[in-house]
Design a protein around this nucleic acid. Structure first.
Lengths: 227, 227
DNA sequence: ACCTGAACACCGTTCAAGT
DNA sequence: ACCTGAACACCGTTCAAGT
């Protein structure tokens, strides 16, 4: 006698970890960290809030999963097979810019990246950079330090830029905000803040992306000088 | 014999912003971000939760104030009057190590630093570093970029290290945790994670502080090479 | 002015009960 | 197995009422 097969068919709109993560990313993009609640998520997925816990352990895991989802779409660990990158420095700049732009588009990622240690997203960043550090000819015992340093720099800028991106959305709003900050800097005590006061004049005009790249280039120059 | 006060639980001091911030730092140090609630704070200060709002606008402002309080104790903006630092590189290392140690001791600071853009704490870091960048002889138009880059690196390491420090408290626990992470790395797909797999062997033995300094030195070498 | 603490409008998470 | 949604134990914040 034939055994009755288990009910393999599912509702086309069945809940899944992937659908939950995708919906969570949409909520985070639309309204920031505060907009991601299990109730809002359940409403958007037309289910009960408890159902989400069948696919995801808790909110921390959900946030880690959304972060990994965004980063995985940026750091491509499967480059053109065999052929090594022609220019490791250009490859590192590309990874950095990809992460910068991704975190600018999804500011909540900037904070999430430093919540869980050795998170999957962080490992992907280190892998992507580490290969290029390898290609740069850095001696083996220094490779870990160099890759971590570049990764930390990128995540540091990302976190700071995310704070800015959360605060202002339009380019006009950005200019107005930076001018307000610069005006505040210009009023600081000259004895205590000589450098910041001087920098206040050029700060509103600076381009975050250019500044990020400038710092990355300094770093790469240091790697070239020391190894 | 003196009579005891009628209400023993009543606090003797008046509430103040400073006392609130100090108590908040204690709660954060003892139990992390989750331990800081207005109810817990009110209990510790022997007052009602609403009283805190007379001195502090909301929780975001309170968190910014606690972060500023810790950072202000680390970055000294009033060095020996007149005499410039004999070695700007050593001064930058000292600032970096001071921040590294402070954030290791108060891990919650690591995340808070990237929540508010151009926060007072961030401005203090930029000022402390910027003066030394000045002393290094970096041309004026590059000074802002260089100071921001070093600051971003320091805050990036801080955030990552804070995540680690939150996770493990004892040195033994740290070793066990790193070995667990390294074992997970060693099991990654060799085609997708060749670098991380190779690095897994040396990762558990690395010293976070040394690695931080190594990265900072690469950065300083880059500044020397380019300016 | 400064403080009190109950009340309000939320949370994340659990779990008996359903399919 | 997967889902529902009420219930629980919390939150941050407000505000009429007190000193």
């Amino acid at each position: 006698m034939a055994t009755t097969p288990p009910r393999a068919e599912r509702r086309t709109d069945a809940l899944s970890r992937d659908r939950i993560v995708a919906a969570a990313v949409e909520l985070l993009d639309a309204g920031g960290e505060a907009a991601l609640t299990f109730r809002a998520l359940a409403t958007r997925l037309a289910t009960g809030s408890g159902a989400i816990y069948w696919h995801v352990a808790n909110k921390d895991e959900l946030l880690a999963a959304t972060t990994d989802h965004v980063i995985a779409g940026v750091v491509d660990l499967r480059p053109a097979a065999g052929a090594p990158a022609p220019d490791p420095r250009a490859a590192i700049r590309a990874i950095g810019l990809g992460l910068f732009d991704a975190i600018d588009a999804h500011p909540w990622v900037g904070t999430q990246l430093t919540r869980e240690p050795w998170q999957r997203a962080m490992v992907q960043v280190i892998e992507g950079i580490g290969r290029q550090v390898w290609a740069l000819g850095v001696p083996e015992r220094a490779q870990f330090d160099v890759a971590m340093a570049i990764g930390s720099y990128i995540l540091g800028v990302a976190g700071q830029n995310a704070a800015n991106a959360r605060r202002v959305t339009s380019p006009a709003g950005r200019t107005a905000y930076l001018e307000m900050v610069a005006a505040r800097w210009a009023e600081l005590d000259p004895a205590e803040y000589p450098f910041v006061r001087q920098v206040a004049a050029v700060m509103p005009a600076h381009d975050d992306r250019e500044q990020f790249l400038a710092g990355l280039d300094i770093f790469l120059a240091g790697v070239a000088a020391r190894h």
